[in-house]
Write a protein that binds this DNA or RNA. Structure first.
Lengths: 188, 188, 188, 188
DNA sequence: GATGAATGAGTGTTCATTCAT
DNA sequence: TATGAATGAACACTCATTCAT
């Protein structure tokens, strides 16, 4: 039963979003070591405001990761939906999904390493993470029912592979990695 | 025409070794951002000494990486030797080698990311790196001749996988990763 | 079109002044090599504050020099004013001015050499420097019209002498130097 | 009555000379802040050797200054000799001497400021300084007897002017300075 | 609530000097 | 005695965080 939180003021919400976006952008393009001032400037607010929303740099990064996971969750759910409506095959969606996750991280080099370097848990117990898990589970089960995915594969296996994907490398490298890794997942 | 380098003094050699060891240890356990002072203290020398041996933090990290690659090279050559003397099967040695590399890095969390974060080339054109490459090439060729390794596999593929191995995870996780990845390399 | 600069906060202005004063004092009495920390302490602020106002030691010294030149400009203009209102003779004012500049620098040994050693231009194209030049030019012209100043003397000549004055010596020495140098400027 | 000092070994003397030369060169061209290591390297010895000869950087600089004063002394004595043999007029020699001192320092920018910045007395009580003084005294007296030099001028006056000469400026500037300063010394 | 000035511990690095070889 | 490796205090500068306005 959630504690009733006073709703944020409209401009505070707007600021929060601006900050997360700017921080994402800055950290992605200049690495974890961008200063808080730089992030604040990029977000068009003062440092103080930034600290009002995120008491710690770590908190800010955690928010970014959550943001990122959230997008991934929405993506995964869309994949599952396409399968469930008969629009496509589960295994194909799974492969495409892994590829897309790698691609999107690739544009934003440092986010993952950032998260780790600041001790942010890779899989925070967010609802977003849970949503990814649920959607992928759906795809795996269906893929196995189709006989396309190896029966012993679990969602954790997929997480393991995705968290070790060579995100900050050229497309060809990422594609080659996918080809190397696929036989361990699929049945053919 | 050999370059006439004056041999280092005995104590200087000892210090250099102490420094590399301590730096390895410190960076591995506390991340790249350990201070040079901390490293020096851990090595039992003064900062100045550290800087006499490595004019820059980057130089120090490069030396550590080289040290690490060197060990990996010796290991790979031993594997190849065992195969060439008929002592064991190339594919088996390859798998074991990958596992060992993961194990050894595992104790020392951050070294690889460290190297990258400081702009140290992952594969500096060291003789050590060349040695690893040569030995692994030998294993791959033999494994393919044996029909154990997929014909399209190259040494670069192995590097790709090894550099994305989940080094900083528990044994079981690393083992699971190996099982997921193996089908992409071997023929069975 | 005036550049819209947000006015500094009152306390920031106060701090800036405190810093310039303290830096002047410290550098003057202990030489250029006083640490920034020492200057900060003397100013009663933390180093960070010092760096917020002057991003570089060189910037700080430049500010000090400007401060100093500014005072000299005001002084020179006062001299010229006295002459123009008929209150005194141009040549006398000139001599007194040179003496005063020597005196004021004398308390603060190293400022000039400091400026030079940090690569700060001796005559930055500040309005202050221009003001000194204009006022001295006025005095020189009038002194020549009076027949007191040698006709070939220029403002640059005065600068040359003033920048070579023995600022860090005892009064008597400085006075003797003035007597040695005067015949080259005046007609008697 | 000097204490009998054990004569230096031949190679020690050679080293001392090499060091002073190298130090002169280095400090002149790179400023006071050249490291002792750099000086030692330039002199072809190890730092330890340098420190055996000069226990302190200040001592080394003092030695350089003495070296410089020594050359100036020889020069001054030659001037005096030319006057005494009737070869030239004292006042002319004096002016030329001042010009030469400025010139020679000019090649070696930082030496004087160096000396001062390290707290080396400008007129160490060396025999060399005494020789300069004696020779200049001879020139002054003769110049005054000739009616060319103002009667109130002393050797100290000359020192005062020479130590304030704009040594590190272009020839034209130095020449202009000389013209400005001459009327204070001569009778015409 | 937002601002941005102030804080101060910490960083990598230098260099005069000492001392074991 | 000469060597050059070791020392360590000092330096200019940074940046996450706090707090007066």
């Amino acid at each position: 039963m959630p504690i009733a939180e006073k709703p944020m003021r409209a401009d505070a919400i707007r600021n929060r979003a601006k900050i997360v976006d700017a921080a994402y952008e800055q950290i992605a393009s200049h690495g974890v070591d961008v200063g808080m001032d730089e992030i604040a400037t990029a977000a068009g607010v003062a440092v103080g405001t930034l600290y009002r929303h995120f008491p710690t740099k770590t908190d800010l990064v955690a928010a970014i990761v959550e943001h990122y996971v959230d997008a991934a969750a929405t993506d995964a759910e869309a994949s599952l939906a396409r399968v469930q409506t008969g629009g496509s095959r589960a295994a194909d969606e799974l492969v495409e999904y892994i590829r897309r996750v790698g691609d999107s991280s690739a544009d934003h080099v440092a986010v993952k390493s950032t998260a780790r370097s600041l001790g942010v848990e890779p899989h925070p117990d967010t609802s977003a993470a849970a949503r990814v898990e649920a959607a992928l589970a759906g795809l795996v089960v269906q893929g196995q029912a189709d006989g396309d995915i190896r029966p012993e594969i679990t969602v954790d296996d997929l997480f393991l592979l995705m968290t070790t994907a060579p995100v900050n490398q050229a497309v060809e490298v990422r594609e080659r990695w996918l080809q190397l890794v696929l036989p361990g997942i699929t049945t053919h």
